[in-house]
Design a binder for these strands. Structure first.
Lengths: 356, 356
DNA sequence: CTGAAAGCGCTTACAG
DNA sequence: CTGAAAGCGCTTACAG
């Protein structure tokens, strides 16, 4: 129990009176072993606290069981947005339940990009990757394809459909959000969009589709752009207010946070003077803004599924499909001043519409 | 350039007409090599894009250059609080600048604790750890000590002073916060504290010290407890309001968020009816609550320094000190309704007092 | 300054 | 069902 010296297979074998090959087999759960031998070896393992050296195992088996998570430098708002923590949580759950180890590669600058790629590729350390790239001009993906590094992308980029990826249904989500406002009878429905990434494009597409399907035309004066930061949402809303929208679909909750502040400063009340629908689930913001109806994405699940997909790819069986697009929900909140904390004592009042 | 086949030292050596030992030496920057040989080898390396197999290197050198970050299950609010993202960012910077690889171990349940420990200890995969444990009854630390796994703790726990750790100065921070309210002339200064972890203890200590140093006595009716969640802050404030405090020091911004909502519902205006000081820097909350004065901790730096410390430990030289306690700042904000966004166009108006 | 060789701790055909 | 042996791709004394 208390033996701290690091044992090897060989030594465990000696202790159990078998060869190292046999010990290796029981450690790895190989089935065809005489029960008595298995037991004897297992007892020695338990008593000595033997733990296999993962490095040696990986080297010999050409499989490290380590997967990497790449967070590119373009990912702004890593702090302010719970998106990454949520995603990481989901990935971590997936990693744990598949007995893998997770390596985290955060890129903090364009300079570090090359370094990161090199430290991942061709070193044998990483079996596969999860790449969180929503950028239009991602630099990693072509590199990964060239080196035949297995990976699954979270989000969308401008590459071939053959890429494995999992995403949330941005188009359907913003379609729902916009349709919701339309059906409520709003006439001047603006949007704070972004053209910095693919999800932004998709969300704008959904907005436009809803208009089209209801025989309405998008008024370009009611479309302004931000960059997913709180500040940009604030400035975008400032820009929008003179256009007198009666509703705004803000395509990210970080921007919504800034937008709400701008409205507050302009003494416009939500939703009496103007309706607002946000996107993403940013818990602190949402809790601080109970009047904010929002589109909720299953972010954690996205991470979890990405791991499952990667595991399948690594095991050789092709996953059933190359792309998973998860449905999102529109969370409609009543907009009075009442408590909306998501606690058990204060049940949240919300209606949930499922997409798909 | 385009050669994708994975080369070994041996093969590179053959190509350059030297032994694998020599190639190994130039790869590792060993100094005493004839310049012409070095160049010749280097050229082959560059031309072939040779990358050393990290697994083999680690196995042979007994050094993986991988360090782990452990986030225990007790860490609530991984989503809602940017604390962990910030910390991770700092750690990641440290890891990158020291040419290490970061493994992330998130524990999602008590059951996973044992699994995580086992997957780290005695497998040769991890050189050292950074443990973010602020819990009083941490399970990891004794285990790590027993197995002589090098680690540095972030925060504080109930263990020996011989542990390497880096923390922020919670006592000084809450002392400043409380003193600030005292000096402003408030008479009934309440606190929403927590007794769930060590930083909570320290922050309460700072609150009490400030009272003591100003010849005041802590009124127990003005001390309520939460658990660092938004909800708990809400309920704590509800509890507090009947006691008619004229100021509240809330020991975490997540709780402050809930507390502010409770005040809003009670139609108490900040700071006209009641002053509030928060703790931590929760960007979205702070930006949404520009009237919130808060104690700001150098979280990212904490992570970075933890890595530096660990690197020193691993390299054999004992770091100058076992404990680093970083100073914090009190960020005092004017409390009118004006814009306080931290953007360049809207310079934030804040006075900053340095502790130490 | 350079090479031959042992060794790191596993896995895995190959025999038997 | 089990063992002897080769091999994974490096590092690093040890000679020279």
């Amino acid at each position: 129990m208390e033996i701290m010296k690091k044992l090897t297979l060989e030594e465990v074998g000696k202790l159990a009176g078998v060869s190292r090959a046999t010990v290796s087999r029981v450690v790895n759960g190989y089935p065809h072993i005489r029960p008595e031998i298995r037991e004897r070896v297992q007892r020695v393992i338990d008593e000595t606290g033997y733990r296999p050296n993962l490095l040696a195992r990986s080297l010999a088996s050409d499989r490290s069981n380590i997967i990497g998570l790449v967070i590119p430098s373009g990912a702004q708002a890593v702090f302010t947005d719970p998106y990454f923590p949520c995603l990481t949580q989901g990935i971590s759950r997936g990693v744990n339940s598949n007995n893998l180890t997770l390596a985290l590669f955060m890129v903090h600058s364009a300079k570090e990009e090359e370094r990161t790629i090199l430290s991942i590729l061709g070193t044998g350390l990483i079996d596969g990757l999860i790449v969180t790239s929503d950028n239009k001009g991602d630099v990693f993906i072509p590199e990964l394809l060239k080196h035949e590094m297995p990976f699954v992308q979270i989000g969308r980029s401008l590459y071939s459909d053959k890429i494995y990826r999992v995403d949330t249904d941005n188009i359907a989500g913003s379609y729902m959000a916009t349709q919701h406002l339309i059906s409520l009878g709003y006439q001047r429905i603006a949007t704070i969009a972004t053209n910095r990434n693919c999800s932004g494009d998709d969300r704008f597409t959904g907005y436009c589709s809803a208009f089209a399907d209801h025989g309405k035309v998008v008024d370009r004066k009611l479309v302004v752009y931000g960059d997913y930061t709180v500040d940009s949402g604030y400035h975008a809303m400032k820009q929008l207010i003179p256009q007198r929208p009666d509703a705004v679909f803000i395509t990210s909750d970080t921007m919504a946070l800034g937008g709400m502040r701008a409205l507050q400063e302009a003494n416009l009340r939500v939703p009496d003077d103007i309706a607002v629908v946000g996107y993403d689930d940013l818990p602190p913001a949402v809790q601080a803004n109970p009047q904010l109806t929002t589109v909720r994405q299953p972010i954690e699940q996205t991470g979890f599924l990405a791991v499952s997909m990667l595991v399948k790819i690594l095991s050789g069986d092709d996953p059933p499909s190359h792309q998973i697009v998860l449905p999102v929900e529109l969370v409609v909140r009543a907009s009075c001043g009442a408590t909306r904390l998501k606690s058990t004592s204060h049940p949240i009042q919300e209606d949930t519409y499922q997409a798909n």
